[in-house]
Every structure is written in C-alpha cells, then in structure tokens.
Nucleic acid binder design. Structure first.
Lengths: 146, 146
DNA sequence: TATTGTTATACTCTATAACTATA
DNA sequence: TATAGTTATAGAGTATAACAATA
C-alpha cells in the first residue's frame, strides 16, 4: 500500500473517530449532534433562520423543525428583529448558553485526550498538516462548521 | 491559542470535511452514507444481521430497516445460513458489489485530491500521526468502520 | 433459557412543494 | 416580485419494547 493510500485511510478512520466523540459528548449533555452544533453557533450571537439554514447547508424548512425542538427543550428562542417584521433571530436561552459552553469544554477535553499520546514533534507536524488541509481557526468556530 | 487547541480545532474541521466528502460521494452513487458503509462491509463477505448491528453500533431492529431499504433497491439480499435456521446473511447483489467498488474508488480519489497539496514530508508526518492516533489499516476497511 | 431476527411505535433530521406575511 | 419563515408530506435512520422461531 502506498503513502497516499495509507494517509487517506487514516483520514477516514480519524473522521469517524472524531464524529463518535462528537456524538458521545452531545449525548452526555442530552443533545443531538445537530442541536449541539446549532447551540454553538447561536451562542456566538443570534442569527436569522435563513442565515442559519445557509450556514448548515440545509433547507429553511429543516431549520424550522430544528429550532422548534431546541425551543421546546428551552435551549433557544425566536426573537423579533427590529426593522424587518418578516425576520426572526434565534438566540440561546441561559440554559442553552450553558449547554453550549459545557459541550465545547468537554469536546476540547476529549480531543485533548486523543492527541495527548502524540509526541510534541508529531503533534506539531500534525498541526501543520491540518492547517494546510483545512485552514486555521479556533475550536469554538470549528465545532459549529457545517 | 496553544498548540493542543490548534490541533483539536483542526481535527474537528477535518472530520467535518471528510464527512462532507463521504456524503457527496455516496449521493453521487445514489446511496445514503449509511447504505454506502453497509455495502462496503458486506462486499467483503456476507455477514449476519446481529454481527452487522454490532459492527455499526446500532440495534438489530435498526439494521432490519437498513437492510430492507438496500434490498428494496436491489443492492443486497438476505440469504439463508446453512446450519442455523434462525440466522440470515446479508450479501451484496451484483449491482451492490459494483456500487461498493465504485464508491471506494471515488472516495480514494477525492481524499487523494485533499492531501495532494501537502508536501511529501508533511504527508509523511501526517501519516505517522494518523497511524498513532487511529492505528493502521487500508482504505477499504477504514471506509466501513462504525 | 438464550439467541436471531422481525414488528410496532415514536422521535430526529432531512427534502420538496405550497403557503403567508412582509419588503 | 423577492425574501423570511412556516406548514404539509414523505422518507431515512435510530431507539425501545414486545414478539416469533430456532438453538
């Protein structure tokens, strides 16, 4: 097996592993992965429905249901937008902010554990490779990308 | 932002990116991501329902529905197991084998493109880091892990 | 009694199409 | 007319619980 084949296989494995962690941490906070992503986004500032749908790459109708469910669970709420009576903003409640914060913290811890076994040099190299592959950015924003 | 935070953020980004590719390639072959995973597994040899459910980490009842759908689409079929009249094996049809092969090939190509921009040294380092993080293994088996 | 697989039911997530209200 | 959001409907994927047949 050549060099590239080995790397690509590792990428797929790693991706599944990270998604497993994401799902497990979400569940531990009584959230679905999608709800966790949504809360992480709106915790950084209220957003409109169309804006959010675009951000997540889903239809507006799908977002209506998503927001319905987090709202029913008391984690977010729709608020009016001054100056445009059609529009709504989605903002986290106090509980939603808390959940988003806890989720992000725990994701950082779990991923930290994952890379803790790497030598400092290898971790440094990994960081360089990742920066080239997917660009820079902090964990907070990474967590809520599509 | 420290070293580890940067790496963990990159891991999350990368994970989402790979999942996007997985979903896009699946769709291009008229499969859902889960169906693609299932076909990749059974293409390596027929497996029992309970075995598959365990492999994917889902309940047996969920697997019944999954297999119903791929069977309805003519991509796999349930076959009797000689020696145990309770058991069933899931085996790919000719069309299912073809879909699995095409899916794996295209995933390899897409992921190859993703890492093509890295310098040989960095790719080598990335390979080492991935091997330590998630172990070795070829793309075929990586593709159908949980 | 334990295991294999299914059925019934319910929930989340998603898409498409048709709709309302506002700009 | 175009945009923001919703409703209605359908389908995939999942879980739990109860069930059948076989070991």
């Amino acid at each position: 097996m050549d060099d590239i084949a080995q790397v690509t296989a590792g990428l797929v494995r790693l991706s599944f592993r990270v998604q497993e962690i994401y799902a497990r941490v979400s569940e531990r906070h009584d959230l679905t992965p999608v709800q966790a992503k949504l809360l992480c986004v709106v915790a950084d500032g209220p957003r409109g429905m169309a804006d959010l749908a675009n951000h997540f790459g889903v239809e507006r109708a799908a977002l209506t249901g998503l927001v319905d469910r987090v709202e029913r669970r008391g984690l977010a709420e729709r608020t009016a937008v001054p100056g445009d009576r059609r529009a709504l903003h989605v903002a986290p409640t106090e509980a939603g902010c808390h959940a988003a914060r806890a989720f992000k913290t725990e994701m950082g811890e779990e991923l930290g554990k994952l890379v803790a076994g790497l030598s400092p040099e290898l971790r440094e190299h990994l960081g360089q490779a990742l920066a080239q592959l997917v660009g820079p950015g902090d964990l907070g924003t990474a967590m809520c990308r599509p």
